[in-house]
Design a protein around this nucleic acid. Structure first.
Lengths: 195, 195, 195, 195
DNA sequence: CATGAATGAGTGTTCATTCAT
DNA sequence: TATGAATGAACACTCATTCAT
């Protein structure tokens, strides 16, 4: 009897070993040959675990985003004030630690693929991401309403914050060396003073 | 000296004749063959006026954006109220007329390329675009301050509006069938009430 | 010794379980993976019983042809007149019942492979098929001679009928929607009147 | 100005230079790489003159068949008796001169492709071939009727002869070393005596 | 015996760029 | 100056076969 491999596990392993590859060469220039080489397996073996190249890319991105969402949930629990929590929503963009920057660059590549309509999975997946962040913002605002920091019209703010976060990300992606921190603080002032 | 002028002129001519081409086949799938055919010149001749394919794409995009900016300026002049003018900033995203949708799709492809770091020129160019829109928003807000509709702290709003516009664009690009009009109106209320 | 018997048996079993597979995907597109799956065995196990893919295909075709020959013998026994029997020789081509059409399509693929010289076994095998049908025609004609329906020169007719049958098959294979029934009846008239 | 090549001419040239290639390796194993190498051009250049590999194969076969039909017409004109002319119909199969054998082997490869339904062009093309040979046989028989060698029912014979010719070809393709000459002579006796 | 994981050679097609005329 | 013919590197994906367990 031959050894039975855990297909799902090996799939993840291959994806993990290629995470840097995406960072180095970009998703679009990633070749299956490179993936195989990086993962120390044959090219054919790649296709034992992935449907096609799109699937490989999807898996790698998938892992990144899941990790990012888990990290976000952990962090948000530790924060007390509404201000801090809203700021945390933006910190994905603002944080300049090496780890965050790298993560942001993955995200950038990911968005580039989404925008080019090349990858069906990505678009669906992207909706899930939006839903996640929307839900988080809702939670933060509901809590604030309960605390009496905001009045009941808070629901209208959810999308405004969401859009602002997307705008921040967009600007960071497309402009070099832009200072966004203070703008965010101004924005938070703007929406919290409102009540 | 006159030759250089002619070169520059012909370069523009070629780019202009290919503006629709991008819409038909997409930026990334544009081939030099198609460009030559559309411009009614030989393939080799294309390389007399452009360094490489990247350069062609850049010039075509350039034409599109210049046109879009001119159109924006024309429209903004006709508008009276500050509300209308700010809304016009967002209308690039919100307008669903055939022409606007087409233009927005160009922009989407364009952003995808900027994000993938494939084209150096694009990134620099993108900064110019940001500067243009920033300037426009500044003008609108300054006018509003002069009219007394806003107090002097208006400068802080420029970037907030800019970011909101980018966020709108981002969301429209990455989500299907999303209703953004009311959110914009809410947002405009939010910033104008503030004063 | 008993092991060899078992090997031969299992080989047949595998081939039998894959008879329909050829119909579904075509001989040339048959993969070893599919064979293994259909036979409910491991891919490696296939190679315990077959030299290579060519060998698998050969065995499957073998099953089909044996079956076809058995069916022919059964049918021919039930027929009385010489006319009917000769017509039965052609019915492999003429019959449009689902089953016959399916069988004819197998045969078509099979011939395609024989003609492409891809499979050595096939060519030898094809000779056996010719010998079988030749023998059958001989039997029919001898009987006819015994009955006094044909004179002694009947032996010359064997090959003519054989060739006519091959030509019918060929035409059916390579032309769409061709009416062959009446031509056959004319042909039978031609050769039987002769005596 | 660059040199302007006659595309149609070069297409033929490339096809001609590859005629032996098909004979050597078989149509199905022909690779575009080999074609390019044999024609002493780059692989990309092949695609300047052919849509795809199918198109290459089609052109080569096309040339062969046109040539074969021209040769047939020339030969048939020189022949006097109906017997000779009908025999000439079969000589494509019967003639064992090096040239004829080579031509027959091309035909064999061609039929293999037709049977595998891989190539749309081929199937249509094959119909033309049938029409050509049918027409030729008709001409021969009409002439014979006019000469009084056959009675008016000759039209029924056209398809019988056609099918017989196909059967001959089939048998020659699928059997090694088979003697067909005498069978043909018998067959011609059979149909001509009939009148 | 049985297996299925691993493999990598093989292939049709595209297209930006070059260069001889 | 203008051209378009020529090019070949690049790439995703398949599948028969092997072999360690």
């Amino acid at each position: 009897m031959p050894k039975i491999v855990n297909k799902e596990l090996k799939r993840k392993e291959i994806a993990i070993s290629c995470m840097d590859l995406i960072y180095d060469v970009g998703i679009r220039k990633l070749t299956v040959d490179e993936v195989a080489k990086k993962a120390n397996i044959g090219k054919g073996t790649v296709y034992e675990y992935f449907e096609n190249k799109e699937d490989i890319v999807f898996e790698i991105i998938n892992m990144h985003i899941q990790k990012a969402q888990q990290d976000f949930c952990k962090k948000i629990k530790k924060l007390k004030t509404t201000r801090e929590k809203i700021y945390e929503v933006f910190s994905f963009v603002l944080d300049n630690s090496e780890n965050s920057v790298r993560r942001f660059n993955y995200y950038k590549e990911y968005v580039s693929i989404v925008l080019s309509n090349e990858n069906e999975n990505m678009l669906k997946f992207n909706c899930n991401c939006k839903d996640f962040i929307t839900q988080q913002i809702e939670n933060i605002l509901n809590e604030a309403v309960n605390k009496g920091e905001l009045n009941g019209n808070a629901s209208e703010l959810v999308e405004v914050i969401l859009i602002f976060e997307k705008g921040l990300a967009f600007l960071k992606m497309t402009q070099k060396d832009i200072e966004l921190k203070n703008i965010c603080l101004n924005f938070i002032d703007l929406i919290l003073k409102k009540s």
